[in-house]
Design a binder for these strands. Structure first.
Length: 216
DNA sequence: TAGTGTCG
DNA sequence: ACAC
């Protein structure tokens, strides 16, 4: 049978962030232990590493990937790669558990049959941040973006399609899932500098999982 | 321009 | 908030 892992939070209404985007509060909570185990396994195969922007500046998050495609950044630019530049091996497999979580979350926002082929994992420690940007390295923008928050709370910066629009600040908590697609697919977004704190499971860090359909 | 530094 |  199809498990009821989502029975606790899967039924709550999304908080609207736009016409085709929303926040699912606590959506991933029923899976938290399994998600944390999966992340540990991924990091054993594909270690956390620091990436650099094309301008040569270090990003403040630590990054790894799982799935067919992994997001990578260096002097050459932003792109998806099939092999981990650090190990030369393919990225770890995307856990079925994560695939199902993403599919279910996307479905809640009206995006049916979402199939992630890329999962970017970003680890934030206090002081880390992510500047406003668009997710535009994927081959098509037809599929939505699904973003899972674990660990310390963060202020999500939710902007418009134009960079000059002032972003809203939305607190994201452990277990929250944000989905955006359609007319909201190219919205600028980011994460404000992470405040100090300790999470019961993750300690002084926040891990964000971004699930995307990057390839064909 | 997924960055930092500077100015109201 | 904005310039680069």
């Amino acid at each position: 049978m199809q498990h009821d892992l989502f029975s606790t939070n899967g039924g709550s209404e999304p908080i609207s962030l736009g016409a085709q985007s929303g926040l699912l509060r606590g959506f991933a909570l029923p899976l938290q232990d399994q998600l944390l185990d999966a992340i540990q396994d991924i990091a054993l195969e594909a270690p956390w590493r620091q990436l650099f922007t094309p301008g040569g500046k270090p990003m403040s998050v630590r990054t790894t990937n799982c799935g067919t495609w992994g997001w990578h950044s260096d002097r050459q630019g932003y792109r998806y790669v099939a092999h981990d530049p650090h190990t030369g091996k393919p990225w770890p497999q995307l856990p079925e558990l994560l695939q199902q979580l993403a599919r279910r979350a996307a479905s809640q926002l009206g995006f049916s049959d979402f199939e992630a082929d890329a999962c970017l994992l970003n680890c934030y420690e206090p002081g880390a941040q992510m500047g406003l940007h668009q997710d535009r390295d994927e081959q098509s923008f037809a599929a939505p973006i699904v973003s899972v928050s674990l660990g310390l709370p963060a202020q999500f910066l939710w902007g418009g399609t134009q960079r000059n629009e002032r972003p809203a600040r939305i607190e994201l908590l452990h277990g929250d899932v944000v989905v955006w697609g359609g007319v909201d697919r190219l919205r600028f977004h980011g994460v404000a500098k992470l405040a100090a704190g300790k999470h019961p499971q993750l300690g002084a860090q926040r891990i964000n999982l971004t699930l995307r359909h990057a390839g064909n």
